[in-house]
C-alpha cells in the first residue's frame, strides 16, 4: 500500500503519524502513544501494527513490551511531510 494511502486511511492513522512526524525522536509504547493521540488503546494497537508493517514505524519488541519509533528513511519522511503539507493546504 502507498504511504499516502495509509496516512489518510483514518483520522487515527493520521494522528499517530503526525505524532511521530512532529516528535521523530520519540520512542513509546502502545500506552504512551495512546495517551499522546488521546485514543483508545485497542484502536491504536491496530494502527501501530499497520504502520510498522508499512515501514512508517519501527517496532522494537522485547519480552515485556514493544517500543514504537519513527522511520529513519529520509525518502519515507519526505513523502509523509509532503502528504501532510498538501493536506493542510487543501483544508484551508
Amino acid at each position: 500500500m502507498g504511504i499516502e494511502k495509509i496516512i489518510f486511511r483514518s483520522d487515527l492513522h493520521k494522528k499517530v503519524i503526525m505524532f511521530f512526524h512532529e516528535n521523530p525522536a520519540a520512542i513509546d509504547t502502545l500506552r504512551g502513544v495512546s495517551t499522546w493521540v488521546r485514543a483508545d488503546e485497542k484502536l491504536v494497537k491496530k494502527v501501530l501494527s499497520e504502520l510498522a508493517e508499512a515501514g512508517i514505524l519501527n517496532s522494537i519488541q522485547v519480552s515485556s513490551t514493544v517500543g514504537y519509533s519513527y522511520t529513519q528513511d529520509m525518502q519515507t519522511i519526505r513523502t509523509i511531510d509532503k502528504a501532510l503539507s498538501n493536506e493542510k493546504k487543501s483544508s484551508f
Binding site: 516528535n23 525522536a25 513509546d28
Partner: peptide, 18 residues
C-alpha cells in the same frame, strides 16, 4: 515535548533493561 521526551526515556529504560 518534555513529557514526550520523559516518556521516551522511560520506554528506553524498559527496552534496555529487559
Amino acid at each position: 515535548p518534555r513529557a514526550i521526551a520523559l516518556s521516551t526515556v522511560h520506554t528506553v529504560h524498559r527496552l534496555i533493561n529487559s
